[in-house]
Amino acid sequence: MMRRKLKVAVFKFASCSGCQLQILNMEDELLTLTDAVEFTYFLEASRATAPGPYDVTFIEGSISTPEQEELVRRVREESRILVAMGACATAGGIQALRNWLRLDDVKRAVYPNPEWVKALEHSKPVAEVVKVDYELRGCPVSKERLLSFIKQVLVGRKPYLRREALCMDCRRKGNVCVMVAKGIPCLGPVVQEGCGAICPTFGRGCYGCFGPSIDARPEALASRLREIGMKDRDVARLFKGFTGWSEKFRKVIDELEGGAR
């Protein structure tokens, strides 16, 4: 089947590059994939770049500086489908922990010349700046879901990725609920599926790197965690870790911390 290759771009913002790396990690599929896909802008893979417009653009990282805000707007204009990829791009990432602190304090704690650093007040998800067509969650993003997304775009269908609670996938997989059987706090009931339930499979609680599931009720889970003996502070921390700046988790965190920001 010959067809025009899909022009794909990968842009990095405030991030660790781990999500892009998942593309390169598709070792078994990469050669077949490049028959159908042309990576026209993907600096982690190649310094050879071509200008837009792009069919699909994957954005890694949060928007943390004024320059990034500018750049992401330009990228949006050049992209037919724009995909926010990973916890940083979809929820602000771990670096969004600074959103609960004063920017000046954070800068001073890290840099000898804080006045040189131009940063936005908040580390923001891409969707706070430009329109995002699809989200691929996770820290890092799931390679399988990323590949599934690309395959679906290639056949020309509207990409379908389940967005329900991780519990469903975890239990389908045959895991035993760690919260019920071991009393381990787990965010699975309110976190989007897609990782393959990695942490519960190894007997750990989900720490939420995929962010809230569709129609999640983190406030109900927070009450339950307190009921089984967790302190407010610890519940807030659990939600804060990776995707705390997502709207739904932020609300619960702020309530637990008494609205202090």
């Binding site: 599929e29 077949t32 994939l33 028959d35 159908a36 599934s148 395959k151 679906q152 290639l154 056949v155 269908r157 379908y160 389940r162 329900e164 609670a165 991780l166 519990c167 469903m168 239990r171 389908r172 609920c177 699975g188 009931p189 309110v190 129609d215 999640a216 009720r217 109900a220 889970l221 009450s223 339950r224």
Partner: peptide, 26 residues
């Protein structure tokens, strides 16, 4: 008090709802 996690659906011995997913290959 419900999280909406559908864990009950999953452990229920009679719940039969399903989703059909077409996964295209390269």
């Amino acid at each position: 008090r419900c999280f909406g996690c559908a864990g009950c659906n999953m452990v229920c011995p009679t719940c039969f709802c399903f989703d059909v997913i077409d996964e295209p290959e390269l």
